[in-house]
Amino acid sequence: MKIAVCVKQVPDSWAEKKMVNGTLDRENVDAVLNDLDEYAVEEALRIAEEHGGNDEGGPNTVTVISMGPERATEAVRKALSMGANDAILVTDSKLAGADALTTSAVLAGVISKENFDLVLCGTESTDARMSVVPAMLAERLSSAQLTFASSVTVDPASGKVTISRVTEAGVDEMYANFPCVISVVEKINEPRYPSFKGIMAAKKKSIDVRDLAAVGVSVTSAWSLVADSAPRPPRAAGIKVTDDGSGGEKLASYLAEKKLI
């Protein structure tokens, strides 16, 4: 099987985030591999390992695909050190501030040339928090959409993929045939830590860096425009009481006073 995993480099979720000129200030915060994408990398590796592995000459390959600034190679390298085989990074100054429609067009541009059987994604990038790129990819690639998977079973011989989809609307059992776009929820597995051997091996793995012209996708102007952004006034310091037996009553009186009950 040819498996792709889409990963994004994002600002560390613990870092303070600010808006600069209508987009997120990415320059001044630590950047990491989107932690929800680690589950997608792990699942891709598990699917490969369950069906003959992804060693050189083996039946499967796992390719990391990312769009982002040049330093996104760090996040890509992490996915490689977990065990992915190779990577493609699309980086271009024209992509600064790209939104989901552009991102999905670029990723689809790369993926459509490679005949992947499976494309795995996380459910959400922790910076954009849109949860739309996987669905857009499925639409653009005319592939089956199997998103929000809490389990994935693949039969390489028949090309059938079965998942459980968990969302607020409940649990659906679904199946489709290759090629599929799958997004996985964080409950699906426990991502491995890169081993020392993995980290050393990753240094030798190739990252194919491409610009937009090489992908063959042109970027049109923005799909939406930010008019303004402003920090909200911080929450006023709250009331804090230590329970001495009357904490529950005090809470009930507070709720009554605020007309919340």
């Binding site: 006023a236 709250g238 009331i239 009481v241 037996g245 904490g247 529950g248 809470l251 709720l255 009554a256």
Partner: peptide, 26 residues
């Protein structure tokens, strides 16, 4: 607690039943 409008430092098993009574009484 940093973002709480009202915080009770205490054991939830002691605080909640009293708060429940308080709400019902109200």
């Amino acid at each position: 607690f940093e973002i709480a409008d009202f915080g009770v430092i205490g054991d939830l098993f002691a605080v909640l039943p009293k708060a429940t009574e308080g709400v019902k009484a109200h």
